[in-house]
Simulated assay, not measured.
Amino acid sequence: MLGADEAGKGPVLGPMVAGAVRADPAAIPEDVDDSKRLSPARREELDAVLRDDERVAVAVAVVSVDRIDDPATDMNSLTVAGQAEALAGVARDGDRAVVDAGDVSESRFANRVGDAVAAGNGVDDGGDSTDGDGQSVDVTAEHGADESYPVVAAASVIAKVKRDRIVAELDAAYRERGYDGIGSGYPSDPITREFLREYVSREGDLPECARTSWSTCDDVLAASEQSALEEF
């Protein structure tokens, strides 16, 4: 049984991360849940438990800000690609996968993910390419699958922990440059908004970790041009 989910679809800073888990159902901890419902400490514990169990295979795919900002694509397609790349890192021919639907049409999303897995463009958990002939996987997509299927909840934990670690590394790097941290990376986070305001004020441009195609970035640049950053 395989599950896949993603974390970080909506932030203005940092990548989106997709996670996939292939596991004996008995290997999934009983208290696994949608990652948003778990504390950071519990997510870290579950991530370690899953990775340390030989009955569990884990893979992640990191969708960079450059891919997100590419005008030739869109978030639905990138969600398909991310989940498929993660699944392809652990899938075997004939597996059944349940994924969290990233499209209003569950069946369309499932078909797109299945086709992409069959293309074989995956990555393993070390970030190495697993390109090949692909695997034939029966994919079902459901909205809220991370609330209904433990294996999808497990994948959501894997994805969230990986993204949180990436954001923590970015935060540390910008603190070394004299900033007060980047926050969660979400547009609603006042720390994130203050970081963007201060960065543009200092540098005159957006940081490399920003999704420049997001409206939040347009707003901060417009405020800079109007000398109104304090109102951003």
Rank of each mutant, 00 (worst) to 15 (best):
A4T: 01
D5A: 11
G8W: 00
G8N: 05
K9V: 13
G10H: 05
V12P: 00
G14T: 12
V17H: 02
V17P: 02
A18G: 05
G19Q: 01
V21L: 02
A23I: 01
A23Y: 00
D24I: 01
A26Y: 03
A27G: 02
E30G: 14
E30W: 07
D31S: 09
V32R: 00
S35Q: 08
K36P: 00
R37F: 03
R37E: 03
R37D: 02
L38V: 02
P40W: 00
A41T: 07
R42G: 00
R43E: 01
E45A: 07
A48Y: 07
L50S: 03
D52K: 13
A57G: 06
A57N: 07
A57I: 05
V65C: 15
D70F: 07
P71Q: 08
D74L: 04
D74N: 15
M75H: 07
M75K: 12
M75F: 11
L78T: 11
A81M: 07
G82T: 12
G82R: 08
Q83G: 08
L87Q: 07
L87H: 05
A88Q: 14
G89K: 09
D93Y: 13
D93F: 12
R96W: 12
R96Y: 12
V98N: 14
V98W: 15
D100T: 11
D103I: 12
V104L: 13
V104H: 12
S105R: 11
S105K: 10
E106Y: 11
E106C: 10
F109Y: 13
A110R: 05
A110K: 07
D115M: 12
V117G: 12
V117F: 10
G122I: 01
D124N: 15
G132R: 01
D138C: 11
D138H: 14
V139N: 03
E142D: 09
E142A: 12
H143M: 11
H143I: 14
G144H: 11
G144L: 10
V152S: 06
A154Q: 08
A155F: 03
I158G: 01
K160E: 04
V161Y: 05
R163P: 08
I166T: 07
V167P: 01
A168P: 03
E169T: 13
E176C: 09
E176K: 10
G178D: 04
Y179E: 04
S184D: 14
I191S: 06
R193E: 09
R193C: 05
E194W: 05
E194H: 08
F195P: 01
F195I: 04
L196P: 01
E198W: 01
V200F: 10
S201K: 14
G204R: 04
D205S: 14
E208A: 11
C209Q: 15
C209D: 14
A210H: 14
A210I: 14
R211I: 03
S213W: 05
S213I: 11
W214K: 14
T216V: 07
A222K: 10
A222H: 08
A223V: 03
S224V: 09
S227E: 15
L229R: 03
E231F: 09
